[in-house]
Amino acid sequence: MKVFALLTVIITGVMLVYGAEDFPKWGDPNQPGSVHVAPRYTQGTYIEAGTPNIVTSVVADYRGYDTMGETTVIFTAGMACILMLRKKKRGEGESNV
């Protein structure tokens, strides 16, 4: 098992390092990730969404639907714990954990 784990880790690691070769430099202001979609958020945040905090406007407005999904994930986790751990109440005194 240990050998297998080590092998998997090494293969994955080599693959990731290979892919990182064509990454833009770290912190490059003109990397593709920063010039295609993101500038609209920076420039439009106050005019279109009404807040100077760019992250807020993206979280709650431009990509607000993702945030609804995120809250649903939390709800799912909560319901999952209730489903898995809640026990039937047997008489008084026994707490339900």
Binding site: Y41, T42, P52
Partner: peptide, 21 residues
């Protein structure tokens, strides 16, 4: 990625703020 007061009205230069996405 929080705009300063003078950049509020669309004049913000994206190079001055981190990528929020």
């Amino acid at each position: 990625p929080i705009l300063t007061a003078e950049d509020l009205h669309g004049s913000a230069n994206p190079l001055h703020y981190m990528n929020p996405l």
